[in-house]
Nucleic acid binder design. Structure first.
Length: 422
DNA sequence: TCTGGGGTCCTAGGACCC
DNA sequence: TCTGGGGTCCTAGGACCC
């Protein structure tokens, strides 16, 4: 038996949005750059260059905070559509190195190198730690060469171990955690470093005097579970070099049945924070209509209908409520909007101005031909099909239903009018 | 200028069925 | 009449990730 080799790799693009902005504008190189909400808008930092992190700027931080900490930094608005083609090209490079690639987010990928022995031979004579490390180094260089983007990588026996290792590897490095030495290498880290332990759990653990992962996993399993629940128990599993972990199965994610069939996703949602809190119910309803239109369009694009519709409201005091309803599958605006309005009636628990509204579709089922009267009032009108066709070609915002604006009101049904917005 | 937007997963209680 | 389990679905909230 060859010695166990860690074969799960987490590849993470370093300060991804900032790196892309630098490719497009090389004068940003070496400067303090913050990507996030536009100036004057409500929002947070989505990416911060290493130069600006020195001032304490972090992603997720309110924009106003970032401006206060680093007033001289360069602030850029987030341009999602600009970044995703780069992520796609990175994935293409990864696929040349490994047949099993999972996209975890726009800037993070997991690779499973099990069953890649032939590839190993190309890079070294032994099937050992040094060989897979060389493969991953070469992969990083290929990404840099072909896309210009810096990346870091972690290698471990399981997904969480690889993930933590990639964090240790930043910037632009590779860290391998040998099988069987997880506790030794990762144990001294603060509990917050473990994926799944966030601010709330960290606080609970610190209050109990547990600061490091070692201290956490030394607790008896029963006590761990009873006091801190499933997350803490998963940490123990992640740091135990047993067979389950070596297979990367500590969570049922990743390998065989990871990706939902047909590329379907579990839910589709859109939400919007108002520039300033809104007390006018009609304006809230208008926004709900816009959001409903958008999620229904995305559902049709994906070829799914939703059984569950969820409305989300956040009030001016940040209190958030959700109301949901499960019914026959739909992706038809008129139907979904009717449900959203009903949920809205139920959700106005606070007489406070509204900060955010959201609409979510879940419980998605594959789009099958409807077994209903084809000309029922809830069916997409032919004009709806035409709308979708325009959007397929020119993008969602090429055309809008009704007129979005304070001076006009929404028309009652989609078939009444189509108004091009620009 | 406090606190985005897209997701996933977990928990817990109640309804309902067997 | 009393006393139960499981299992599944639905709903609401919340932690967490990038």
């Amino acid at each position: 038996m060859a010695p166990a080799v860690p074969r799960i790799c987490c590849l993470d693009l370093d300060t991804f949005f900032v790196s892309v902005e630098r490719l497009l504008d090389p004068s940003l190189e070496g400067k303090a750059v913050v990507v996030g909400a536009s100036k004057g808008q409500r929002g947070v930092v989505t990416a911060a260059s290493y130069e600006v992190r020195r001032f304490g700027v972090r992603s997720g931080m309110p924009m106003a905070d970032a401006v206060r900490r680093a007033p001289d930094a360069i602030f850029l608005p987030t341009r999602h559509n600009t970044y995703s083609p780069y992520a796609k090209r990175v994935r293409e490079v990864l696929e040349r190195f490994c047949p099993e690639v999972r996209t975890a987010s726009i800037d993070e990928f997991f690779l499973d190198f099990r069953g890649c022995e032939r590839l190993y031979r190309r890079f070294g004579d032994a099937d050992g730690d040094a060989t897979i490390e060389r493969v991953v180094h070469e992969m990083r260089r290929a990404i840099k060469r072909e896309t210009g983007l810096p990346a870091s990588a972690g290698i471990g026996a399981s997904r969480p171990v690889a993930k933590i290792a990639s964090g240790l590897a930043k910037p632009a490095g590779v860290v391998l955690v040998p099988v069987g030495r997880e506790r030794e290498v990762l144990g001294p880290l603060p509990v917050r470093k473990y994926p799944g332990i966030g601010p709330v759990m960290e606080e609970r653990l610190l209050r109990a005097g547990l600061e490091t992962l070692s201290q956490l996993v030394e607790l008896p399993a029963g006590e761990l579970r009873a006091r801190f629940g499933g997350v803490a128990q998963r940490v123990r599993a992640g740091l135990e070099p047993n067979a389950r972990v070596q297979l990367g199965r500590d969570r049922p994610a990743f390998l065989e049945h990871d990706q939902p069939q047909g590329g379907a996703v579990g839910s589709i949602s859109n939400e919007r924070t108002f520039h300033a809190d809104v007390g006018d119910i009609q304006r809230v309803l208008d926004q709900l209509r816009t959001l409903t239109e958008r999620v229904c369009w995305r559902a049709r694009q994906r070829g799914v209908r939703a059984r569950t519709v969820t409305l989300k409201l956040r009030f001016s005091n940040f209190h958030t409520v959700t109301r949901s309803m499960t019914d026959r599958p739909s992706h038809v605006e008129a139907q979904v909007l009717r449900r959203v309005r009903e949920l809205f009636q139920r959700a106005q628990v606070l007489a406070l101005p509204v900060r955010l509204v959201g609409v979510q579709l879940s419980n998605l089922v594959p789009d099958a031909p409807q077994l209903e009267l084809p000309l029922g009032p809830d069916q997409p009108a032919p004009v709806g099909d035409a709308l979708d066709a325009v959007r397929d070609r020119f993008g969602y915002d090429a055309i809008r239903l009704g007129v979005a604006g304070s001076k006009t009101r929404w028309l009652a049904t989609p078939s009444e009018a189509v108004v091009a917005a620009g």
